[in-house]
Design a protein around this nucleic acid. Structure first.
Ligand SMILES: [Mn+2]
Ligand SMILES: [Mn+2]
Ligand SMILES: [Zn+2]
Ligand SMILES: [Zn+2]
Lengths: 140, 140
DNA sequence: TGTTAGATTGTAACTATTACATTATAGTTA
DNA sequence: TAACTATAATGTAATAGTTACAATCTAACA
């Protein structure tokens, strides 16, 4: 818990139980949950929690680079990640699980002398995950 | 116009004025418009158009691979593209223009023997476009 | 030309998110 | 420790984009 307090203090953000709950939940549940999933999970032990608080804190933490937000190509809801270092995502079209892809790709090298100045890259992959491949022969 | 009729016929879709309008608009305006932008533009000459029709037809055309849909990481609205061949997008953080990036990248080769079966890739780039670089020295 | 499956329309509902006003509290100060 | 104040939490209402639905219409075909 001290880890989260330290992180918030570093960014000059007030330490509130709600913020600690959100950080703890994201850290312990690396499934890239949506705002509502975070809200529903925390509400079990802290029924007074407001969804607005979840949104507010998610915003401020994303702005401070404590957590990361992203969105899948075919989904309309934002998802959140405790991990802020460069990585990509793989979503399984069968079970909808989201996996981290830590392979680094040479995205920017290609654009050294490109007409536009490329600063950021966002990418994600889709397919069938190893579990679904194992359980369902039709995906082979 | 015959081009669009042919395309719709090939997919066994009825030829309606609304469908032809949407296809023609997307073909002649390669700016990756949103559903509402398509609607607003066509409504000028065809005021009876319903937004539901735009959504319905966009859906059916995406499903038939006549047009492509995508979404930018920080936007909540879908955008549409007449071009369905593999390509990526670059969005300018200054003027918000969206450019096609036709450079092919070796995304899938990396995953030949990967634990998950990778089938699709989606990616987009962000930065400052050549026009904004020219017009604004602070971006250099 | 009549028939009908599928398309169009307008309205209402829905989902994710944001705005806003009120109340509460974390962190600071006396 | 008590008081103060800037910031945070809460609940409600508003918004944006999209989808559901029922009534009406029309493209395609016999
Ligand atoms: Mn991740
Ligand atoms: Mn494009
Ligand atoms: Zn799976
Ligand atoms: Zn620009």
């Amino acid at each position: 818990m001290q880890k989260y307090v330290k992180e918030l203090k570093y960014h000059k953000l007030k330490i509130t139980p709600q913020r600690l709950d959100i950080l703890k939940f994201l850290d312990n549940n690396r499934v890239h949950p949506s705002a509502d999933e975070i809200y529903q999970a925390i509400k079990i032990d802290s029924p007074a929690l407001s969804k607005t608080t979840v949104y507010n804190n998610i915003d401020v933490m994303v702005k401070n680079n404590i957590i990361k937000s992203f969105r899948f190509m075919d989904s309309n809801e934002l998802r959140f990640d405790y991990k802020t270092t460069e990585h990509y995502h793989f979503i399984c079209r069968e079970c909808k699980s989201i996996y981290d892809i830590d392979i680094s790709l040479p995205y920017f090298e290609k654009f050294k002398n490109y007409k536009h100045k490329v600063e950021e890259f966002y990418g994600d992959y889709k397919g069938v995950c190893e579990n679904c491949l194992k359980n369902n022969s039709k995906n082979k």
